[in-house]
Simulated assay, not measured.
Amino acid sequence: MEEDNLTMLNEFILLGITNRLELQAPLFGLFLTIYMMSVVGNLGMIILTKIDSKLQTPMYFFLRHLAITDLGYSTAVGPKMLVNFVVNENTISYYCCAAQLALFVVFITSEFFILSAISYDRYVAICNPLLYAVIMSQRTCWVLVAIPYLYSTFVSLLVTIKMFNSSFCGYNVIQHFYCDSNPLLSLLCSNTNEIELITLILASFDLISSLLIVLVSYLLIIVAILRMNSAEGRHKAFSTCGSHLTVVAVFYGTLIFMYMQPKSSHSTDTDKVASTFYTLIIPVLNPLIYSLRNKDVKYAVHRTWKKICNIFSTV
Results as ranks from 00 to 15, higher is better:
G233F: 00
L245D: 04
A203M: 14
V223Y: 11
S209W: 07
S267M: 06
N191S: 11
N229E: 14
L187Y: 06
S230E: 04
I147V: 15
D180M: 02
I198F: 08
P183M: 00
L220Q: 12
V216R: 01
Y218H: 14
N286R: 04
L207R: 13
E196R: 12
F257E: 11
T246W: 07
S181R: 09
S275E: 09
S190R: 02
L219K: 05
D269A: 15
I195L: 13
M260I: 04
F164K: 03
S264T: 06
L226S: 12
S267E: 08
L187T: 03
S156I: 00
S156H: 05
P287I: 02
I198K: 06
H266E: 11
N193T: 14
N182W: 10
L158R: 14
A274D: 14
T254P: 02
Y151W: 11
L219D: 09
S167I: 07
F238H: 07
A249T: 14
L285G: 09
S167V: 08
Q175H: 15
G253Y: 05
L202R: 10
F177I: 01
Y218E: 02
I198S: 06
F164T: 03
L202C: 07
S186T: 15
H244N: 15
I222V: 12
L220Y: 10
V284L: 12
A237P: 01
Y290M: 09
G242A: 15
Y259E: 08
L157V: 15
K236E: 07
S239Q: 06
S166L: 08
L255D: 01
M163S: 09
H244D: 10
G170A: 12
T268M: 10
L245M: 14
P148E: 01
S230P: 00
D271C: 12
T279W: 01
L202N: 12
S204E: 02
F251M: 05
S166M: 14
T276Y: 09
S166R: 10
T246Y: 06
S275Y: 09
I201M: 10
N172E: 00
Y278C: 06
M258R: 13
N172W: 01
I208M: 09
N286M: 10
G170E: 03
D206V: 04
E196C: 07
A203C: 13
I174W: 08
I174N: 09
V273S: 09
M228P: 00
E232H: 07
L185H: 13
L158M: 11
T153P: 03
D206L: 04
K162T: 15
L255H: 09
I213G: 12
L220P: 02
Y171V: 13
L202M: 08
A231P: 00
I174P: 09
H176E: 10
I289N: 10
P183Q: 01
S217E: 00
S156M: 05
S243L: 04
I289M: 11
Y252Q: 06
S152F: 03
A224K: 11
F168P: 04
S239W: 09
L255N: 11
T254K: 00
L215A: 15
T240Y: 11
V155N: 12
I198L: 08
F238T: 04
A237K: 00
R234W: 00
S230I: 01
E232Y: 04
V284P: 04
L197V: 01
L255V: 04
T160Q: 05
C169M: 07
I221E: 00
S166Y: 06
Y290L: 07
L285A: 14
V284G: 06
Y171K: 15
R234E: 00
I198T: 13
